[in-house]
């Protein structure tokens, strides 16, 4: 369980470094974010929600059955669009409305 940060997409806003509940993300000298302690990620997805540039994706470690798919999330008004991109390039989006409660 961890995250991957695409340094080409990172704009250096530092929001992910602030929000991480484990303070695991830091800035490199080139002002791009990186995860200093990838094995310490809880998988809460706070950072990927915070990133407005889609630079951070979330994946399952191979030790917990991960197969290389990456998840990102973007906000659109009240909607949170969770996108999962599989290794074969196919994408699936699950949309959650912030105003909708869990039904279960």
């Amino acid at each position: 369980m961890s995250i991957a940060i695409d340094s080409m997409k990172c704009k250096g806003c530092k929001k992910c470094t602030t929000v991480c509940p484990g303070s695991l993300i830091e800035m490199k000298e080139n002002n791009r974010a990186y995860i200093r302690y990838p094995r310490d990620c809880w998988g809460c997805a706070s950072c990927i929600k915070e990133c407005a540039f889609g630079a951070i994706s979330f994946y399952l470690g191979a030790d917990i059955g991960g197969m290389g798919s990456k998840m990102t999330v973007s906000a659109e008004g009240d909607l949170l669009n969770w996108q999962i991109e599989k290794t074969d390039g196919t994408k699936e989006v699950v949309t959650v409305n912030k105003k909708d409660s869990n039904k279960y």
Binding site: G22, R39, W42
Partner: peptide
Amino acid sequence: NNPGFSRHKMWYPPF
């Protein structure tokens, strides 16, 4: 449960 790479994929906050 997952003592390797995903050691912090746990129920309670590892922090």
